[in-house]
Design a protein around this nucleic acid. Sequence first.
DNA 1: AAACCTATTGAAAATAATTTTCATATATCA
DNA 2: TGATATATGAAAATTATTTTCAATAGGTTT
Lengths: 138, 138
Amino acid sequence: MDELRQELKIRGYRLTSQREAVLRAIYEGACTQSVEEIHERAKQWLPSLGLTTVYRTLELLKHARKVQEIYLGDGKVRYEPILETHHHHLICQVCGKVEPVEGCFLSPFEGATLVRNGFQILGHRLELYGRCRDCQEG
Amino acid sequence: MDELRQELKIRGYRLTSQREAVLRAIYEGACTQSVEEIHERAKQWLPSLGLTTVYRTLELLKHARKVQEIYLGDGKVRYEPILETHHHHLICQVCGKVEPVEGCFLSPFEGATLVRNGFQILGHRLELYGRCRDCQEG
DNA sequence: AAACCTATTGAAAATAATTTTCATATATCA
DNA sequence: TGATATATGAAAATTATTTTCAATAGGTTT
Ligand SMILES: [Mn+2]
Ligand SMILES: [Mn+2]
Ligand SMILES: [Zn+2]
Ligand SMILES: [Zn+2]
């Protein structure tokens, strides 16, 4: 959180109660929350918080690399905090459940910067699709 | 294409010129096209084609596993054909260019069905983020 | 080939998510 | 504290996608 304060100062941004509330909501919430969910959670701490400000703050936090977007196929973008622990997601194609899975299947990528096709690879995103325990039959 | 004809008949769907045009547009187009782009391309063959029908056909083709969705972070969903060759994408974080990269970095996944956390893993999606040749400096 | 039935289509209207506008409020710094 | 530029909330605007509905056209049966 102090780290955020630094980030903001460097960029000439201000530290507001709204930004703190949104950040806290993201960190205390589930693995992937919709904007609406983040808004609801953040209003716990700051009931007057507007939805527009949540959108704006998410954009800011995205640039500051505090959150990342994830799209699960329904029409809305979701967000989750960028934590120390790199992880991926198991997504159930039947019920839509999302579960984080620790660790990385792409061993050559951990830490290192790779080059391929002239691309300098800086990060990656992996989603695993299937059926969760509850949705398996036969 | 004949395969599609079978698929449709089995499900009681009809083979229309609209559906043929959309499918052709997807197969002849780039790796990831927006709905608008698919519409434009398909109108080459069928100028009267409506955008609504493109949306409906994409939904149908998704269920028939002929196309898959991909979300690149701008507000619109993109589509690409599901081809024989499994591949992933290099996405430039600066200019937004998308380039397919053949082959799979997840060796244990090719073909096999894996189980993890009780999940039965049936497929996956991997996107690699970085900077393309043109956008690298310093 | 004509009739029949139902799935499909296109245009327009409706929705839903996200962005923009603008007047007001407030964080930061001298 | 006061000056000032950034940030905020509400409402309006925009954009992507879905729904509605009357008209059209596959596919099948006579
Ligand atoms: Mn997660
Ligand atoms: Mn592709
Ligand atoms: Zn990984
Ligand atoms: Zn792969």
